[in-house]
Nucleic acid binder design. Structure first.
Lengths: 110, 110
DNA sequence: TCATTATTTCAATGATTATTGAAATAAATA
DNA sequence: TATTTATTTCAATAATCATTGAAATAATGA
């Protein structure tokens, strides 16, 4: 992964509302959630939510599909896992090991 | 983890220079690296590096110790792993599983 | 002490970003 | 067609952040 891609994705997640949206979608998994339901769950104004969904989409962290008059948003787990891997890449490769440097128990429910 | 903590850490990582510094320190592991060596490796002005190290420190992602006239910086793996876990927490707990929703091979060298 | 090396702080500038209210687009139903 | 529902776009404002050059602090060695 290019560092610019990682920065783009981290920037998208580095905002309370976008992070809350992303985590909500991660919980939901492949089913996804319509925009209105996300807005209701997080008490966000529709236009504000739209602004933040655009940011997450542009970063490649979520995808959307039209379903009638609803737009359903889902997390992109490949993008997420790619980012997590990038952050821990070559961990301790050039120096001393660290006891806390261990694979986290990510995504344990899947 | 409180969402504000996660946002603070993501914000710290969401900048090319800080992300490069962090990844360099992750490679180095527990040994850490003096500020000047980081600056040389990444071709950053000392004051610019100091600004970014401050950001990473304030977010709790790195720690520092004085060694003579050097200041040695090291990654905080607990903070990093806590953040990674937070991003994948309750993955697919409320909806359909996703084939790509699997633990990444983090930190495989440790 | 004086000079050198390492790192941090400060102030000014320019750029990016979130928020708000209002309006526009798009699909479904009466 | 007209109306309602769902979502997005737009424009203005306010706030935050990175960069630069210069100066300050701190530790070492001559």
């Amino acid at each position: 992964m290019k560092i610019e891609t990682a920065v783009t994705r981290l920037t998208a997640l580095a905002q309370v509302h976008r992070l809350a949206v992303f985590r909500l979608l991660v919980r939901k998994g492949a089913d996804g959630m319509p925009a209105g339901e996300i807005a209701a769950a997080l008490k966000l104004a529709p236009n504000a939510l739209s602004f933040h969904l655009k940011g997450l989409s542009a970063a490649g962290l979520i995808t959307s599909r039209q379903d009638g008059r609803y737009v359903i948003y889902s997390p992109d787990f490949k993008a997420m896992n790619g980012l997590l891997d990038y952050l821990t890449e070559n961990c301790c490769a050039d120096g001393a090991l660290d006891a806390a440097c261990a694979p986290p128990q990510n995504c344990q429910d899947c």
